[in-house]
Design a protein around this nucleic acid. Sequence first.
DNA 1: ACTGTGACGAGGG
DNA 2: GCCCTCGCCACAG
Length: 113
Amino acid sequence: MSDNSGFFERVYEVCRKIPEGRVTSYGAIAKYLGAAKSARMVGWAMNSSHNLEDVPAHRVVNRNGVLTGKHHFGGSNAMQQLLEEEGVQVKELQVLNLEKHFWDPMKELSREN
DNA sequence: ACTGTGACGAGGG
DNA sequence: GCCCTCGCCACAG
């Protein structure tokens, strides 16, 4: 834990901080890590975190609010299912009321919390 | 050491 | 307003 030796570990940590019923974008996480241009790396990091149950990758969607990574969740709509179970409305792999469910790490983690 | 990749994002046509 | 292209940067082979 806290093995911030690599960029990936950073992503994992932020993902774990995502509260239930909330979603964030790869770009938001990347920006929080100081690498806004490495949004792609965030998603890729999730690929490695795929084995880690501590990382709720299903709460991470793209800027469009689309469950882009659902394809990596086992090929089923497990990702959408999980989000709906948490109270996030999802329609056709797209999160409804994204702004309402959006969770900004920079904003939320920036505060005292 | 080098190249390719990749669950994105922003910009341009 | 939608579709396409480019950029980007850390990690794996």
